[in-house]
Amino acid sequence: MERHVLVVFPHPDDETFGCGGTIAQFAKSGVPVTYICGTLGQMGRNMGKPFFATRESLPKIRETELEKACQAIGIQKVIKLGLRDKTIEFEDPELLADRIEQILRELKPSLVLTHYPGYAVHPDHNALGDVTIRAISRLSDQERPIVHAHAFARDCQDVLGPPDIVNDISDMAEVKLAAIRAHRTQSQLVLGRLANGQLKKPSSKDSYSHMLRRESFWTYHF
């Protein structure tokens, strides 16, 4: 059993869409989970459907959504880095790695979930994943947690091979769906399309229902 799971992602909702079921399973089995959330997703273009957020109200709304989603999946503690959406790759990576390193030394997680640098599509994902890997690589072999990295770039399977960690999260499908719903501004459009049958069939690997059954990760090798 894990001692403590540390989750590091840049946007409120990354924790839910990418690994909400996995986190919920850890939380349910009594493992403490801490989430380092980089930004408030200030620059998202989804404003709800029908839209109810503005560019200026979005960060506060997403902060509340994050709170509800964390409650749903069982994340007890959120550390907000206070960075700005779309700007992480322009920050000094060593300074950001210092902050992550300090948290790592404090919490001593046995497992870290983060984005696989270079294979996580959004520049913020790749940048924060990179900084997290830098921070973890500063630890000694004995201190270093296992890293399960999330990747979804179109070429990731070609380059990284198939994911070595495939979690069956069917038992947490309802919990994950509740967390997805909590991220209202970000999920209303896609949930509406799902209800209208505009999304891919359940058999498709990228489909929403696939997302409620399986979550995959690549173990990062140092």
């Binding site: 273009r45 989804n46 404003m47 709800g48 459907k49 029908p50 839209f51 200026e56 960060p59 459009l189």
Partner: peptide, 29 residues
């Protein structure tokens, strides 16, 4: 908000595609 004008362009799905906002005070970071 007092002293603030928000303009935005939303697509058919309600997603923001363009925004132009003016304010007498700096916008929050």
């Amino acid at each position: 908000q007092e002293g603030q004008l928000l303009l935005a362009g939303h697509d058919q799905e309600g997603r923001l595609a363009v925004a132009l906002e003016l304010s007498l005070h700096p916008f929050e970071l």
